[in-house]
């Protein structure tokens, strides 16, 4: 009592609820943010994977990177580069398709009989020309002498001579395709359309090219 008055009357007690400052809500906010980040990342990875999976193959195609044996992949890579040279000579030369013997003498793999050729199944190559209307075709068939190491390869070179106006007429069909058969003596169809080759047991070999890898890793379309 102070001068007849109670202390409570002089200073009335006021009750107020004060939350403890222990960072409890911040923890929940942090966990929420982490979960949100994880969800966004997971969705982004999922979308990215979907792009990669979009490069799916047909049942009549093989992926050189994934489906061929190392020895066969060596033959395929060499044949793929040789096709560029065969095409270049055909377009910019006198319109001839290179002979197997010419490429052998010029050390062009897989036609040259070198150490790689011996290790990759000793394929015997032959060229077949098929002038058919406006489409000029050359086939290079390679059959293995060691069937336990490699199957057979068929390089189909084609060139449109639309309107008979020279070698460089535009065509929607690729200038070359490479086909594979596990048989050492594969059956060759009467005509060399995609359907005829598929029916005869051949499968088209599709490479994983640099442009595919750039699309997969950077999402850029290379022309």
């Amino acid at each position: 009592m102070i001068m007849g008055r109670k202390l409570e009357d002089m200073h009335p007690v006021r009750e107020e609820f004060v939350r403890p400052c222990n960072g409890g809500s911040e923890t929940w906010w942090l966990i929420g943010c982490a979960l949100l980040t994880l969800t966004i990342c997971s969705l982004s990875i999922g979308v990215r994977k979907a792009n990669v999976q979009s490069q799916s193959l047909h049942s009549w195609q093989l992926n050189a990177f994934r489906d061929l044996r190392a020895e066969e992949r060596g033959t395929y890579s060499a044949l793929y580069t040789a096709a560029i040279e065969i095409d270049d000579t055909h377009q910019n030369g006198d319109g001839e398709w290179l002979e197997v013997s010419d490429m052998e003498q010029d050390f062009v793999p897989p036609f040259v009989h070198d150490a790689a050729w011996r290790r990759q199944g000793k394929l015997v190559w032959q060229r077949k020309l098929l002038p058919a209307g406006t489409l000029d075709m050359a086939l290079y068939l390679g059959e293995p002498q060691q069937k336990e190491i490699s199957g057979s390869f068929l390089l189909v070179m084609q060139h449109s001579h639309g309107n008979g106006s020279g070698h460089a007429a535009p065509s929607t069909h690729p200038s070359h395709e490479i086909w594979y058969s596990p048989s050492p003596h594969p059956r060759l169809p009467a005509s060399y359309t995609d359907q005829a080759l598929i029916t005869s047991g051949w499968k088209e070999v599709v490479p994983l090219r640099g442009r595919d890898e750039i699309m997969r890793t950077k999402g850029e379309n290379v022309s």
Binding site: S77, R209, G210, E213, I214
Partner: peptide, 9 residues
């Protein structure tokens, strides 16, 4: 892009 048509291994 030099590698655009290279068959990668």
């Amino acid at each position: 892009q030099s590698n655009k048509d290279v068959s990668l291994i």
